[in-house]
Amino acid sequence: MRRRTLIAGTAGCLGLGVGAWAAFRHRPGSDATVEPVTIDSLWAPDEDETLQLPETGRVTLLEFFATWCTTCRSKMPILAEVHESIDETEVQMVSLTFEPVGTTVQPEDVIDWWDEHGGTWHVAHDEGLHFTRELGVANVPTTVVFDSENRLVHQSVGRHSRDELLGLLDDAGT
């Protein structure tokens, strides 16, 4: 009984979400491109700690997360599998938190969480909440995909399987 209510409620929310796109500055499927922003990684797999996000010329998989988010935590192994499967010459993979890093949340706290949960790709703080605001993020985890010309081609909330995420990257042109 409660499961049926849940499904009905989900459908209602998804309907709400479709309507919500109109309010966002950027929405999947439009031809508008997102202007890249230079950000510093909190943790990087290499010496290149500065990012252009999204990076022109590569498809970008952007994952919004928070260290208090249990779903984000359970999604980390899936993201790690995706990271192992992608060709990084074609795909840029970045996780971004909008937590108040540098004020009440220390960078070390995020890095410790990242290390504890097996993050092996770039993780950064959305300083000034630039992308959070531009993309109208209201929940975590939120998955965003830009194509190689920085057009927003996908945005959704919640868990995905490895194959679903790789499919999104394929759809974006990898």
Partner: peptide
């Protein structure tokens, strides 16, 4: 945990 909602 699978699908949440998007705020308007």
């Amino acid at each position: 945990t699978d699908v949440a909602y998007i705020g308007v």
